[in-house]
């Protein structure tokens, strides 16, 4: 009796179906995620990267950003040009001549670089004088003014204050 049952069960064990993962619900979630990401997809090659620790002001502006040199300043008075840390102001944000020169030199170098590329290639977009100002919302106007002054001295005369949608 036990022997017959053993033979019967052995056949069932041999024919056991492999475990199948139910993927349709996972696919539902992924499709919804895909739709959401497609909706937010941006074809614009120019994307601004805002450094950690900088909280930009919000605004009702709907003017899209354009490609240009990016200068950022955090509330701790760190100054970045194209995501590269150039200098940090000390003593609660006091400016020194050396810092002016450092920032100006960096901006001039970028300008010169763009102009050299423009000379070498017809397809290169030339120097457009645009400077994107990514400033922390807590900064006082004197720092914004200083950055604008240095930028204007370096040939960047189109100031774009970068804001976030309110």
């Amino acid at each position: 009796m036990a022997n017959k049952r053993f033979i019967r069960n052995r056949t069932r064990r041999g024919n056991a179906e492999p475990f199948e993962l139910e993927m349709s619900s996972l696919l539902d979630i992924l499709v919804i995620l895909l739709v959401f990401l497609l909706k937010n997809y941006s074809v614009d090659e120019f994307a601004l990267k805002i450094n950690k620790g900088i909280s930009i002001p919000d605004s009702i502006s709907k003017t899209l950003t354009r490609k240009g040199v990016t200068i950022q300043m955090s509330k701790d008075f760190e100054v970045f040009i194209e995501e590269k840390l150039i200098t940090t102001l000390e003593n609660d944000g006091a400016w020194t001549d050396e810092q002016d020169v450092l920032i100006k030199n960096e901006l001039l170098a970028l300008k010169e670089n763009t102009e050299q590329i423009e000379m070498q290639s017809d397809k290169a977009s030339g120097f457009n004088g645009i400077i994107n100002l990514i400033m922390d919302r807590e900064l006082s106007y004197e720092h914004i003014d200083k950055i604008m002054d240095i930028s204007a001295d370096s040939g960047y005369e189109q100031f774009k204050f970068i804001v976030i949608e309110s």
């Binding site: 930009i56 605004s59 003017t63 994107n132 005369e157 100031f159 774009k160 970068i162 976030i164």
Partner: peptide
Amino acid sequence: IYEIGSDLPI
């Protein structure tokens, strides 16, 4: 992200 432009010089 958007911008507020000040196209004219200081």
